[in-house]
């Protein structure tokens, strides 16, 4: 099994948890994304997913719970979704869950647009913020 990838979030980079432990799997990107160098930040994540796709769990649930991302990040988020789409095309069970604050129309729309672009099971999940 490949090693989990964990990246602690900062005020301009998201928290990333990619943990394929069969007992408690977690695949999640959350927080803010406006890294100084988007490619350098997302490259290890995309590489990790390439490795994982060779021998994935029976079901992969991938959670996006972003507060904010800039347009440069949006392109890289699509690259992640395209990798999940490839896994799904290869016959694996994949579900994307797009979490957005219930009053954030822009974040909701962003999820709907991604759902239109990639062919992968996609759930919109509104949440309340206190």
């Amino acid at each position: 099994m490949i090693q989990p990838l964990r990246i602690q979030g900062t005020d301009d980079t998201p928290t990333v948890i990619l943990d394929p432990n069969p007992d408690s799997p977690r695949f999640e990107i959350s927080g803010r994304s406006l890294p100084e160098d988007v490619v350098a930040f997302y490259e290890p994540i995309l590489e990790w997913l390439d490795d994982y796709a060779k021998n994935p769990l029976p079901k992969t649930i991938f959670d996006f719970k972003l507060e904010y991302f800039n347009t440069a990040s949006s392109k890289l988020l699509l690259d992640i979704l395209l990798k999940l789409e490839d896994m799904y095309d290869d016959g694996h069970d994949v579900l994307v869950r797009w979490h957005y604050p219930e009053d954030d129309e822009d974040m909701q729309e962003a999820g709907e647009e991604y759902a239109d672009i990639v062919e992968v099971p996609f759930e919109q999940v509104p949440y309340k913020i206190d």
Binding site: V39, T71, A72, K75, L76
Partner: peptide, 11 residues
């Protein structure tokens, strides 16, 4: 679109 070397997405 492709990401430019400077990391712009044209968006």
């Amino acid at each position: 679109g492709r990401l430019s070397p400077k990391g712009g997405a044209g968006l």
